[in-house]
Structure formats: structure tokens, C-alpha cells
Design a protein around this nucleic acid. Structure first.
Length: 368
DNA sequence: CAACCGTGGCG
DNA sequence: TCGCCAAGGTT
């Protein structure tokens, strides 16, 4: 029963600290399964400061799982704009549709059931199950990994799947049976505010007396740095197909490469730009202009230097020429004509917003 | 299992 | 300014 005693001590100290010091996050006001699900998916791989306003707007516009399941894609994109990893938003909606269509709108009630929901992995299922259903299952995120690796003075291999299993097993061995949800949130809160990656505030830590890394004075080595890919430079071109007479612009659902499955300007390599130029030689009604200026944009480990090309459709009567051109180049389908004035409200990704800014800057230059 | 994917904020 | 990073999941 030694193990039980010490486990209780971890949880007891941690929860006492949490009760006193936790931050008042909007989704903690009162427990709501839908809110918990949305905020946890939103919070994946991002920072809470960014999530908080986005979360509030999201649940204001889509207050229930029914609203999410039936919302249009454009609304979803706008609500997710700025959060990145758009597959999370698509999966969230997929999950809502699944819950409405196959579960009669009744949320899954357990860890194992939540694991079946799209975009819901070990972490998210554990958080939801513990907070909403008091299931005794520990979540493991970057914070929990850091806290546990220090408690146990683990200075290597905590990020691999086997290492994560070790972290998870330990967290499960000390989780509070009475308040599993608060325990999980407390571990993350401790990692975020006290047991920080750099300059941890050990003197304020409720688990200090049980922390091996503190005892050995090796918190800087625990956990080891996450392995990262080397940065890669990429040159990218965005295609702005512009029907000048009607002042409309083509946006497409990109199907591959960067920002796949999002709507915006077709993106291409320098090589593909050459194909565009060749295709345009025999089409006098389409004029190609490279916009002055450039933009930079990072996507994971890619350092993108981008330029924008305008394909100007001179005569509006010639819609067929564009269709033809689009198909020959294998540009992403389907594509839509959007009024130039409304274009900013239709774009969701940060990269597309940079592109359109370049375009509008140029237009205003010519107007003067 | 390693690689992949977006973004805004911060030191 | 710029590299690093943050409440992961999918393939």
C-alpha cells in the first residue's frame, strides 16, 4: 500500500494547489461536454491565449453539436481561421455529424467511445472522459510529459511512443480517483505555469518534495528536447485568376501539398509556373502578371518564400477559356468565382491572406 | 514509428 | 528580427 499512499500524496498536493491557483478558463465555468470537446480539439498544438477568444466565438456561433453538424464549410473555416491545422476543424465537424446521425445526438460516454470520434486521440479522449464522465484515465500532453519526466528524473526517450506509454502509466498510477478531471487539468496547469520548460518555478511547486529532478538539480535536462526536423526553404507561387470585367477571383479547394483540403489560391512550384506560362502563350485573352513584392510564410519546418501571379481574364465572355486553362493545368477542382470585394471574408488561411494583401496593394497602386 | 501538418506569440 | 514553441492526431 506504499504505492497507494504516495500516489495519494501526489494527487492531494496537486489538487490542493490547483484549487488555489488555477486560471479561470472560459470552458471551466460549468462542465459542458460539447464545450469540453471543442476547446480540447482547438487547444491541440497551440497556445491557450490564442484559443480563448476563438473558443468563445465558436460556441457563440455554433452553440450545440447540431449547429456544428449542419454548419456550412465557409462558416467553419472562418471560425477556425488563425488556428492552423485545419484538419482538426474538419474532423470536429465529422465527429458532430457522426454523433448526430448515428448516436441520435447523444455524446459518447466513455474514453473508449470517444477514441472512435474523428480527430479524438488518446489525449483528447482522456481529457473528455475524465472531466465529463469522471473516468479515471490520465491524459498525456506536452505539459504532463514534462511534469512526469521531472518527477521521475527521466532525461531521455520520453517523446517516443514507448516513452509516452511510460509517462501515461505513471500518470495513471497517481491520478485521483475522486477528481480525475481536475487532476488531469492540474497536471497540465502545473506544467504550463510552474513546471515550465525553461526557468521552472520549483519553489512554488506543490510536488517539489517528491520531484527527483529537483532533488538531483537536473530539471534543465528533463525532459530532453523534442527531436525536430531541420528547416527547409521552399519557393512557392500563388495563382490569382482574376476576371477583371466582373472583378471576381477564382478560389479552389486545394487537394494536395501545403494547405491541402483548404480553400484558397492554387499554389504551385516554379516548375508548374512554367507550365502556366506555356499554356498562356496560346491564349491571348489571358494575361499573366507577376505581382511586385513577395511574402514569407512558415508551415511546420518549411520556410516558404512566396510570390503571386495574376492571370488576368480580359474579356468576361470567355469563361470557357478559363475552364479550359484550369483543366489543362490540372489546377485543383472544384473552383469558385468570388467577388473581389468579398474575397477577404472567404479566405481562412494565413498564407492566402498574405497573398490577397499583395494583390490589393498592387491594385491600389495602379488606382492612384 | 517517423513524418507530416498551421499559426500566433514570445524571448 | 527570428527561431522556437504550444492542452496532438493521422498516416
Amino acid at each position: 500500500m506504499d504505492e497507494c499512499q504516495s500516489a495519494n500524496q501526489y494527487a492531494r498536493e496537486l489538487l490542493a494547489w490547483y484549487d488555489k491557483h488555477h486560471r479561470p478558463l472560459p470552458w471551466r465555468q460549468n462542465i459542458n461536454i460539447y464545450h469540453t470537446w471543442v476547446c480540447e480539439v482547438m487547444s491541440q498544438q497551440t497556445t491557450l491565449a490564442v484559443v480563448i477568444p476563438k473558443f468563445s466565438e465558436f460556441v457563440k456561433q455554433l452553440p450545440t453539436v447540431y449547429d456544428l453538424a449542419t454548419c456550412d464549410e465557409d462558416t467553419l473555416r472562418q471560425l477556425w481561421s488563425g488556428l492552423g491545422y485545419y484538419a482538426r476543424a474538419r474532423n470536429l465537424k465529422k465527429g458532430a455529424v457522426f454523433i448526430v446521425e448515428h448516436l441520435k445526438g447523444r455524446f459518447p460516454q466513455s474514453y473508449n467511445e470517444w477514441l472512435k470520434i474523428p480527430g479524438c486521440g488518446l489525449y483528447t479522449a482522456a481529457v473528455i472522459a475524465s472531466i465529463c464522465f469522471h473516468e479515471k484515465v490520465a491524459c498525456v500532453d506536452g505539459n504532463v510529459t514534462r511534469v512526469v519526466s521531472r518527477l521521475l528524473a527521466l532525461s531521455k526517450d520520453v517523446w517516443s511512443s514507448s516513452g509516452q506509454a511510460v509517462i501515461r502509466d505513471f500518470a495513471n498510477s497517481i491520478i485521483s480517483a475522486e477528481r480525475p478531471g481536475d487532476f488531469n487539468q492540474a497536471m497540465m496547469e502545473l506544467g504550463a505555469t510552474v513546471c515550465r520548460k525553461t526557468k521552472p518555478l520549483c519553489l512554488l511547486c506543490p510536488l517539489r518534495s517528491q520531484c527527483l529532478a529537483f532533488e538531483k538539480n537536473c530539471t534543465e535536462l528533463c525532459p530532453p528536447q523534442k527531436p525536430r526536423r531541420d528547416a527547409v526553404d521552399v519557393e512557392l507561387f500563388a495563382l490569382i485568376v482574376w476576371r477583371k470585367p466582373t472583378d471576381t477571383i477564382a478560389l479552389a479547394e486545394r487537394t494536395k501539398g501545403f494547405l491541402a483540403n483548404t480553400v484558397g489560391f492554387p499554389l504551385m512550384s516554379k516548375l508548374e509556373v512554367l507550365e502556366v506560362k506555356t499554356a498562356l502563350k496560346s491564349r491571348e485573352q489571358l494575361q499573366l502578371v507577376e505581382l511586385p513584392g513577395a511574402f514569407t510564410h512558415n508551415i511546420t519546418h518549411h520556410r516558404i518564400s512566396g510570390k503571386a501571379l495574376v492571370v488576368r481574364v480580359v474579356e468576361d465572355s470567355n469563361n470557357a477559356a478559363v475552364e479550359d486553362f484550369w483543366q489543362i493545368l490540372g489546377l485543383p477542382q472544384p473552383f469558385y468565382w468570388i467577388a473581389n470585394q468579398a474575397i477577404a471574408t472567404k479566405l481562412s488561411t494565413s498564407l492566402d491572406k498574405k497573398v490577397v494583401k499583395l494583390f490589393h496593394n498592387t491594385l491600389s497602386c495602379y488606382a492612384q
